[in-house]
Amino acid sequence: MGIQFEKVNFKYAEGSTYENAALIDINLDIELGEFLAVIGHTGSGKSTLIQHMNALLQPTTGTVKILDKKVIAGKKNQGINSIRKTVGLVFQFPEYQLFEETVEKDIMFGPMNFGASKEEASEMAHKVIKLVGLDEDILSRSPLNLSGGQMRRVAIAGILAMEPQVLILDEPTAGLDPQGQKEMMEVFNNLYEKYNKTIILITHDMNHVAKYAKRVVVMDHGKIVYDGLPKELFLEKPLLKKCQLDLPDLSKLVVEIEDKLNIKLDNEIKSVEDLSADIIMKIGGEQVAK
């Protein structure tokens, strides 16, 4: 029981002159507990896809099953409100949506909207602030006087406070410095590994796909054109080119070394350490022997 798309089509502004097919014949089965990356260039349909995952959009045709709820095209769907609690969606630049006087109040807003008491919500705020790697002291501060990276974490804590089973993140590291990006990705990886959350990550950063995702879905012109393992995707050069996707930095380095030196490196290289060990093995051996 996770999220299933069955023959889903979605058109923006159906029937008008601006009609535009954003999703075409989507079949997708996401299990609970997965770490899935959704990639594709701007306009490929990624954002439209994830907005179906918590019923912000209703399909034009087809069905989306979200845990025990169904969102069916053309029907008035009952009980979709609770979907917003189980599937938390973090938009791009979520820090722009912070509005309360204090960080604590901002985090409490979501749970209280879903019926939690003030005490419960406050307890939750103390719990989730640590999950995003911030100190409890920050709870009494104004969210608007924090650094960009801190604001981003507070916004994510606000979603976590609703205790979603599934966390959807739309480019959560955009605009952060390298250290901030690394820390943010570790927060999600921790939620995935230790708290068994389902993570669905939209990103343009192929390094994050290669390093963290266990499965990757590629969108192109509203269709799913790849669904499988990241390391196998990055061997599909023609597909990547067609979808205007880049390689992770590590793969780029591997390809360039292979081409220039006319050697074949290991397919399983996952880190700089692996790469240097393989290079030393393939070209370093004789030199050492001399």
């Binding site: 930095d249 590590l250 780029k252 380095l253 360039e256 070394i257 220039k260 030196l261 700089v272 350490e273 790469l275 240097s276 290079i279 030393i280 070209i283 370093g284 030199q287 050492v288």
Partner: peptide, 30 residues
Amino acid sequence: MTVKLSQKLKDANIIDKLYVKQEDLVNSLW
């Protein structure tokens, strides 16, 4: 990443300095 890799390859005496640009590192390996 080129700097991290060149550090390791330098330690193994394959190259003799650190490279920032990918092209320079690959040429030196070549």
